[in-house]
Simulated scan of single mutants.
Amino acid sequence: MFYQGLGVYEGFGGVVLAQEEGKRLADALGEKNKNLILQNHGLLTAGYTVDEAAASFIALERACEAQLLAESAAANGIPKKLVGDEEALYSYKVSGYPACMHTQFVPEFDLEVELSGGKLLE
């Protein structure tokens, strides 16, 4: 779902309190990216809706965790297998559009509401 839509921002300058840092982040997103890995800091996601941005954040955080586990396994001698461009493009096409992102986010949100006893909505 992040195929050709994920950038890496190498120059993280701290909390975005100045227009200049916001401009640099926007430039890093560019025309195509909706997601950024802020090197040595964290993640930034965007979308047409809050649901899309939130679903992207959850999925990207999980993907980063899976990548770290794969890198750890590779460091211990287990060969890493890369996903091909064709498979990545197909996965993006079937899961990377706003309606799909909304569908992925709703159960996550409902779970958080349930776990908070409804206080999340206050």
Rank of each mutant, 00 (worst) to 15 (best):
M1T: 12
F2M: 02
F2K: 03
G5P: 01
L6S: 02
G11E: 15
V15T: 12
V16H: 00
V16R: 02
L17D: 12
A18T: 10
E20I: 12
E21D: 14
K23P: 01
R24L: 14
L25F: 04
A28W: 05
L29S: 03
L29M: 07
E31C: 00
K32P: 01
K32C: 10
N33M: 04
N35W: 01
N35C: 15
L36A: 07
I37F: 12
L38G: 06
G42F: 09
L43H: 07
L44E: 06
L44Y: 10
T45L: 04
T45D: 06
T49R: 09
D51I: 00
A53M: 06
A53C: 05
I58C: 11
A59W: 05
L60K: 06
E61W: 09
A63D: 04
A63E: 10
A66F: 13
A66Q: 12
L68S: 09
L69S: 05
S72C: 07
A73P: 04
A73M: 13
G77S: 07
P79E: 12
V83S: 13
V83D: 04
V83N: 06
G84P: 07
D85V: 11
E86R: 11
E86K: 14
L89Q: 14
Y90D: 11
S91V: 11
K93G: 03
Y97T: 08
C100P: 00
M101E: 07
H102S: 05
H102A: 10
Q104T: 05
F105I: 06
F105C: 13
D110H: 03
E112H: 03
E112C: 02
E114N: 05
G118A: 10
K119P: 00
E122T: 04
